[in-house]
Structures are given as structure tokens and as C-alpha cells.
């Protein structure tokens, strides 16, 4: 399983400047990866390029050993004419099972809400329901673009731990978030997009704590976590240095 981006550039037609130029990064093997950067730096666009919804203007993106890439984002909605439970039951892929679906519903704290229509749920519940339906699909790589943006922090940590536990060993999870702590805690590797008008060069790669459910409450990690957070924030702010390097 490998994704390798070499010098890819992209800009929207109506924009004055390209969003990013000649950026490179490499994802190798299954696991939980994160993309971190300040708003507007092109994280979602990069996710859409990886998922195949957008074509880079230049550069190459090679994907090996990954057939199904799914991209989920936080403003997605379920169809309104079904209850959440009916919809989820309908879209379970043959590879997943009803038991798996029930497990995620229970773990994500939605058991008491599946009889409701999607638009009757709170924002956080909507995020969770949307993520569940992706987890019961056939995928080799799941890109989660701020999918838990409206979920409270303890639930978010639990959900991420559950996802890692179930998919971290044989699938690629690519998580985009503004929450530096969860990114540092759960990721195997964090790709940091430096703040700049135009992102250039190789994305900064920082080793994460790659925590699991057990490690999550391990206070021994606290210092390492703080150090990683500082590294990520520094990398995200170091625009000039990054541009100079490229």
C-alpha cells in the first residue's frame, strides 16, 4: 500500500495564485496518517486529488496496492426520507456485516438515535452517523476530511481509537483535522502543510504517537505528546523556512 506524490501542483481556475506548487509526500503501508495545516492551505483539495475527484495540474501521483479510496467530509448528509438506522442498514457493503454496523452504532453512541431522521440529529450525531456508513463500505483507504468536526472531544478520541483498532492494521486512514492534539496522539505520521499563500515543496513529516485505545489514557505519554504538538505547530507556522527550502 503506497501513495507517492511527486511535485504536484494545483490551482483553481478563478484563483489568482495556485493553491500549491510542486508538493511531495509519501504514504507507505497501512495505518493512521494525518494531514494538518491552517485553514485554506489546501488540505481538502489535496484530499480530493488523492481520492481522484480532482486532477493535479502538474506532477504525478502514484497509488499502488490501494483500489478503493473513499473520501468523507463533515458537511455530508444522509437522505432525509429514511431514518438513520434504515439508511445505514441499506448501505452496508457485502464485505461488512450487520453485526459490524451495530458495533459501530453502539461504540459511536448512536444506539438511541438510529430511529430518527438525519435532520433531527445534533451536528455531532450527524458527523458520527455519516462516518459509520463509510466504515461499513469496502475501502482500502478512507480519507476523513474533518469528519468529526462537531463531535465533543472525549467522544472523538474514543471514535478515533475504535477506528484505529478496527482498520489501522490493514487499511490506510488519512485524517484531516484542525485538532493538533488528536492528530499527534493517534497518527503514525503527520503531514504538516506550512502556512503560506502558496504551499511549496515537500510536506513536513512528523512522527505521531500512534496511540491506541489503551495508550489513550496513559499519562506517561503526556510529555511526548506535548513535544509532538509543539513540533507540529512550529512546522505549520514555518512558512518562510519551507518556501526557502524549496
Amino acid at each position: 500500500m503506497e501513495i507517492s506524490a511527486q511535485n504536484i501542483s494545483f490551482g483553481y481556475r478563478e484563483a489568482e495564485y495556485p493553491l500549491f506548487e510542486k508538493i511531495s509526500f509519501r504514504i507507505s503501508g497501512p495505518g493512521f496518517y494525518s494531514l494538518f495545516g491552517f485553514s485554506g492551505c489546501g488540505k481538502s483539495t489535496l484530499a480530493r486529488i488523492i481520492a481522484g475527484f480532482l486532477e493535479p495540474a502538474a506532477g504525478s501521483l502514484s497509488i499502488t496496492g490501494i483500489k478503493n479510496i473513499l473520501l468523507s467530509y463533515n458537511t455530508e448528509r444522509l437522505p432525509g426520507w429514511f431514518s438513520v438506522g434504515e439508511h445505514l442498514a441499506q448501505v452496508v457493503s457485502p464485505r461488512s456485516s450487520r453485526g459490524e454496523l451495530d458495533y459501530f452504532i453502539s461504540e459511536f453512541g448512536l444506539s438511541n438515535y438510529v430511529h430518527k431522521k438525519f435532520f433531527r440529529l445534533s451536528m455531532g450525531q450527524k458527523n458520527r452517523a455519516n462516518l459509520i456508513r463509510y466504515l461499513v463500505q469496502d475501502f482500502d483507504m478512507l480519507i476523513c476530511d474533518e469528519v468529526l468536526a462537531n463531535v465533543d472531544e472525549p467522544s472523538r478520541n474514543h471514535i478515533l481509537a475504535v477506528i484505529k483498532e478496527n482498520f489501522g492494521k490493514d487499511r490506510v486512514l488519512f485524517y484531516i483535522s484542525h485538532n493538533v492534539e488528536e492528530v499527534c496522539l493517534f497518527s503514525k505520521k503527520i503531514f504538516v502543510v506550512p502556512a503560506s499563500d502558496v504551499t511549496r515543496g515537500r510536506l513536513v513529516e512528523i512522527e505521531g504517537l500512534d496511540a491506541t485505545k489503551k495508550h489513550k489514557e496513559d499519562h506517561g505519554n503526556e510529555k511526548t505528546l506535548q513535544t509532538t504538538i509543539l513540533k507540529v505547530l512550529k512546522a505549520a507556522s514555518s512558512a518562510h523556512k519551507q518556501e526557502g527550502e524549496s
Partner: peptide, 23 residues
Amino acid sequence: DVEHFFKQTGRLDSIMEIKIRVF
């Protein structure tokens, strides 16, 4: 925001498309 999931998972046929848009 509604069609994205169906499109990706190959479930967006004409009927589903119209159903979503009408709703």
C-alpha cells in the same frame, strides 16, 4: 453533500439521483 456518498460507492443511479434532488 447527499450525493457524494452514493456516487463514491456506486449507488447513484438515475432514480436515486432524482429522489435526492426532489426531496
